[in-house]
Design a binder for these strands. Sequence first.
DNA 1: GTGAAAGCGCTAACAG
DNA 2: CTGTTAGCGCTTTCAC
Lengths: 360, 360
Amino acid sequence: MNKKVSGSKNVTIKDVANKAGVAVSTASMALNNKPTISSDTKNTVLNVARDLGYHPTAAARALVDGKSSNVGLLIPVKVDSLFFSTGFFQKLIAGMNRAANEGGNMISLQIVESREETERVITEAYRTKNVSGSIITHPTQEMPYLDVINEVSYPVVFLGEPPRNFPYVDNDNYGVTKLATEHMIEHGHKRIAFLGGPKNLIASEARERGYRAALEQEGIEVQRRLIWRSRHDEQMAYQEVMNEAGKVEFSAICISVEEQMAGVYRALRDLGKSIPDDVALITIGDCQLAEHINPSMTTLDLHTEDLGYLAAKKLIRLINGEERQDSEIVSADLIRRQSCGCNTINGGDKSKLKVRNSSV
Amino acid sequence: MNKKVSGSKNVTIKDVANKAGVAVSTASMALNNKPTISSDTKNTVLNVARDLGYHPTAAARALVDGKSSNVGLLIPVKVDSLFFSTGFFQKLIAGMNRAANEGGNMISLQIVESREETERVITEAYRTKNVSGSIITHPTQEMPYLDVINEVSYPVVFLGEPPRNFPYVDNDNYGVTKLATEHMIEHGHKRIAFLGGPKNLIASEARERGYRAALEQEGIEVQRRLIWRSRHDEQMAYQEVMNEAGKVEFSAICISVEEQMAGVYRALRDLGKSIPDDVALITIGDCQLAEHINPSMTTLDLHTEDLGYLAAKKLIRLINGEERQDSEIVSADLIRRQSCGCNTINGGDKSKLKVRNSSV
DNA sequence: GTGAAAGCGCTAACAG
DNA sequence: CTGTTAGCGCTTTCAC
């Protein structure tokens, strides 16, 4: 077979039909694997198509069935707290990309800086049909464009729980923090600090509730002084710990997001505290640094790649009308390393670490 | 059965033409600002379109003029050295997005994990015309798919200099390192270490040459022992410095990429060296951490957002046949902070020192 | 100047 | 089962 790529001329379905000696519609149906075509002709057509290097033109197909194969990833950059993430978006996109590939879709970036722009982008996506639906990150309490989405029934899947009844994919923010805090308690700690995120983030609030619940469940009093908050970055986490650590006694910290991890290490080092002997640590969210830092960090792996995968998968099904608008929670795994006191050797306990390829 | 949206039927150009009392072709020409239409009818049409919330369907337009409005960002994830970047992709995408918005384009993600996949993605982009061209990151020496690109004249712009004669946008890797090293020399340092990147990266090699050139220019002997190399991440940079620092004397380090910065700080701290008194530092590439870390880091701002902007702008012009295939170098600015010894107060001196002008 | 009509490549009716 | 045909929404000749 000659896999010669014919330089300039575009191979259309007509060419395939001609070469295969069938009608265009037959070719079309064969290529789309319709049951009404005999497997003989189906094979013939498929072979000819492969030989000719035929690929259906996206525009023509989109024009016919009224929707494109592009799915949007809508990111409000103003919510920069997560955008400086060590690997969140990489993993997320890796997962989305995998789902998109499976469905023959492609991810289009919809980066917006304001509510007006968000509304414009969604409206245009709906009108131009260049993007058939979107995964929207970082839902906040005020999202006036939700009305627009509803009005035109634009398919969306949120990453994180949105204020209204839209489909979303998320971790169990309450549950993961509860589990993390419980793990500290299992290690015998009573005075456990919680380093949370900004108050206006919905996930931050849920994670704090999980922390409280774990303490209350064990009859440990929740102390205001032990609840700290910082922006999701190294520097702010460092400052918060430096500010608060002197005001109260504690033997463990539950760190609410991985971006804060490095700052906590730096602060404890500057304060002359050793990990995990003086202060034990656990962090919500796993990353490369957690594995390589010394001592290695015990984390809850939130399976962010799965999050992206499921979100995209759900969106594509939604677009294809294959699914009703429900939501999904991604599980988390505890990865025991050194910072909590579980292991003394470096590298940690990989027993619960699922093998995951290509974390982008 | 698909559920039909009751109120918001799709607004087509026909609706606009009808409402405006003109023919479809007139409406089309008016909307596309053709000179053959009287400004009176042009205004009428434009107003009606706005009132109706008309947006041209992407697929129909793409079908007619044989290309879509999507531009690809092709990222080979196997080259993960830069993908763990603290902010490179964020800035890059921000710039690309700005350019795309200006041209009415949208960025599509083309994430590939192997050469075969790269070839497949490019071929499909060309065949399906869902993506009209691509910005390709991380060119390496072996890129067999370049043949495919050439064969079908698929428009591409590389980020970084590719092996063959393709258009690209890049920083002056040689120049920036030379400037950085010169700055250390100006501070009186003679024994300057260079922490480079993996040997197989084209940019790494150029940056090392810049370092050598600066030393040679001042008659300072280049010492093998002072040339270090590590992967572009915190951990590997840390280890490399820990391994090499004891074997040789040095009073300054020129750090080749921002991802290595935190590792160098950590290593120097563990080695009991103070910055900048024992060891002065300068880093190629600016980032948030450089500003916030203590002492703050003197850097060369590579204007990564401009890089993305120019790359996308160039690609779009290429797609539209408005530009020949030339390349472009983005200038860099020296940002003087504390780590080099320029400033004692925090915050740094923003006075800018250009390396090289971009030709745009 | 403006309006009718011919496709762009594909899918899905409807005949054969 | 297969072939013919009518559009999807838009741009762009061509006549008027």
